[in-house]
Design a protein around this nucleic acid. Structure first.
Lengths: 303, 303
DNA sequence: GGCTATTGTATATCATTCGTATAATTTCAA
DNA sequence: TTGAAATTATACGAATGATATACAATAGCC
């Protein structure tokens, strides 16, 4: 597909970036930002480079830089790509791991997990072994005595394992930064860690905040960390105010796309959409692809 | 690599630091703290260096220094830190790590930590870099907006790092199994992780349960995991009932020695002894040696 | 107790910033 | 040819910022 000399009219640029034509012209007139080619009759003609430029401008204003100072403060940014997955002799492994957890036997637990990793890609193991195992354990843990200890034990193990892979296994990529945190009240980090792993494998750069992060902390962190997106993980039903008050407030408060993953994203898809956020679902692979697509495509302005 | 030359207006600085614009202007007018650039029309323009500066100011006022004397305090502290003369590589590393945490820059964070590990032994790095850094961050985090996010970020990073060392770095030993958990209500795992690391290095086999574990779960876990000792970490003051009701109950409920580590072990040594447990203190090395000695000796039943 | 210095906050007034609106004219495409 | 859309220019207004002055709470001091 040859896209050699793209000549985008201002209307297209506007819909691609979410910035109104009026504003685009005002920026050009007042600050000399973006200077398009002109037709002989004076109509503006933009290219994809201008789209990229506007994105960078939006990233800066989102961090609190006034538009009048953006020109003096322009620097760098870059995009990325992604990856797929799928197969099955997994139930035996799940049984062994579940039994190991019941005995608090880290050695056996690690042995099975590493053996699986030796044969299959990490995304596969996550998808076919860890996630189903977590579901099974979740069911087993309902109100059982010793459940909390088991859960903590496995959580600690998995955090160490996945954390190690995150910090060491993935060569530091150059893709978009994604702030990843659990919703307020959400204490289960599994989903978030698995997402971070998948995201890192797909050349995103997750910034992990972990469990139970208040919403206003997220806004502050996004500013400081200059992230290009926010992902909130929520599996147990969030507090009533979260979907209808805090989430819209988060979307308004930062100008990067906000994604919500986990079971909540399925149970409350409508409310998430109404808040201006994007519901991801429970498949981390799909989630990462959706984020990629969304970041590559026009950034629709909310308000 | 440095942040782009951002020009932040006063409202952004305010939201980043939690200090009202009024107060920021008053500080500038009255004490000459923070002197921002100005636009041609006189509007103030700040950079991230100013954000850092305000953070240091807040750290001082938070410790009780009157704002009127902060300037003098800063100026007297300045020469001490920025003229290291090669004497102490640790404060420089601490500064870099603290700044990286403020930017949520995991790459830089990891870089400094790994560089330190390349030169010094891990216990040394823990003792001279991580522990002082944690103390410093604890002071900085008093009530600051964004503090929770920063703390979660660093906690997640450190858990991954130390967890990785625990899982990979240490060949599975054959020594005694030690159940390691934080006391109920204790959410800081750092101390516990450091202990587990040291314990593994000393040929113990820690079974890590992590933060905030209820006491009766500990009893159940000890049975199932067949551990030879229990270590409870507690740094913030535990709930009133813990020392006098739950801890004795734990000691009675399982027939292995129970150790308590962290600041609580120092502040409430008598109560811990009365409960039939053993107070360890805050030095993980000493703690591990004490446990070894105790396990080697015939198991004297207390009380 | 009364006095005073310190310090965060409030108000009044004016200027600046920046998105949006309007108007008059021109260009494009069906 | 005709209506939608672009152009320039000017203007409006809400939010924000600057300065100066004032006020209130607190702490130290005689």
């Amino acid at each position: 597909m040859p896209a050699p000399a793209e000549r985008l009219p201002i209307r297209t640029l506007s819909s691609l970036t979410g910035v109104s034509p009026l504003t685009l012209r005002a920026w050009e007139r007042r600050y000399g930002l973006i200077q398009p080619l002109r037709t002989p009759k004076g109509h503006r003609l933009y290219t994809h480079q201008h789209v990229e430029l506007i994105r960078r401008v939006l990233a800066l204003t989102g961090r609190g830089v006034p538009i009048g100072q953006v020109r003096a403060a322009l620097e760098s940014a870059e995009p990325a790509t992604d990856a797929p997955g799928g197969a099955d002799p997994w139930t035996g492994r799940m049984d062994r791991m579940a039994a190991a957890i019941a005995r608090f036997d880290e050695r056996e637990l690690d042995h099975v997990y590493e053996a699986a990793l030796a044969v299959h890609a990490v995304e596969h193991v996550t998808q076919r072994l860890l996630l189903p195992l977590l579901e099974r354990l979740g069911a087993r843990w309902q109100g059982l005595p010793g459940a909390i200890a088991e859960e903590h034990f496995f959580a600690t193990y998995l955090r160490s394992k996945l954390g190690a892979r995150l910090v060491h296994g993935v060569p530091h990529a150059e893709g978009a930064r994604v702030l990843a945190a659990c919703a307020p009240g959400e204490h289960h980090e599994f989903g978030l860690l698995l997402f971070a792993l998948e995201a890192a494998a797909a050349r995103l750069r997750p910034v992990l905040l972990g469990a139970d992060v208040p919403v206003d902390e997220l806004v502050a962190a996004q500013r400081r960390a200059t992230c290009d997106a926010i992902v909130v993980s929520s599996s147990v039903d969030p507090a009533p105010g979260f979907l209808h008050r805090e989430l819209p407030q988060l979307v308004r408060g930062c100008c990067v796309p906000v994604f919500v993953g986990g079971a909540t994203a399925i149970r409350h898809r409508a409310a998430i959409g109404a808040a201006g956020a994007v519901a991801l679902g429970t498949d981390v692979g799909d989630g990462v692809r959706l984020i990629h697509a969304r970041l590559a495509r026009p950034q629709t302005r909310k308000r």
